[in-house]
């Protein structure tokens, strides 16, 4: 699961964003640089979710992400820079995080307590696959030990 996909997912029960936790494996797989796609995605991203995700996967790109997303008024200047062939540190960081960083194993936590498992790179967001720690406290303890 790329961090791009993570940004589009919500909890199927509570419709809230999901926090990446207990990451067991991350892959970095380089792909072609896609500045125009990244620029297009900026206004749609849940920026704080992306920043939190970058921290969860211990990415070295965290520092290149500003606190807040570039505002719509800043985008034309970024577009211009891209058209003239400039490499921007912000877009390099987004390229690495959104398109090249894959969470292979881990969990997606809803603020209401339940979590969903990412196994073999595929997140399972089915409501009946939710793990509810309050109901299965012992199971969760096992998962946490495994994940760390």
């Amino acid at each position: 699961m790329r961090l791009l996909t993570h940004n589009l997912l919500i909890c199927p029960v509570h419709k809230k964003p999901l926090a990446i936790r207990n990451v067991s494996a991350v892959d970095i797989i380089p792909v072609e640089y896609q500045p125009r796609f990244l620029l297009r995605m900026i206004p749609r991203l849940d920026w704080s979710l992306l920043r939190a995700a970058a921290v969860s996967v211990e990415s070295d790109c965290v520092d290149a992400l500003p606190e807040a997303a570039p505002s719509p008024s800043e985008l034309p200047a970024l577009e211009k820079a891209v058209e003239s062939g400039d490499r921007l540190p912000l877009l390099d960081a987004l390229q690495r995080l959104l398109l090249e960083t894959h969470v292979v194993g881990g969990q997606l936590h809803c603020e209401h307590g339940e979590f969903y498992v990412i196994a073999d790179g595929i997140p399972n967001l089915l409501a009946d696959a939710a793990v509810n720690p309050s109901e299965t406290a012992s199971e969760q303890a096992a998962c946490t030990t495994e994940g760390s």
Binding site: T5, P123, A127, A129
Partner: peptide, 10 residues
């Protein structure tokens, strides 16, 4: 190079 992803979603 395609950014193709799969997820289990109802």
């Amino acid at each position: 190079g395609a950014v193709l992803e799969f997820a289990a979603v109802d």
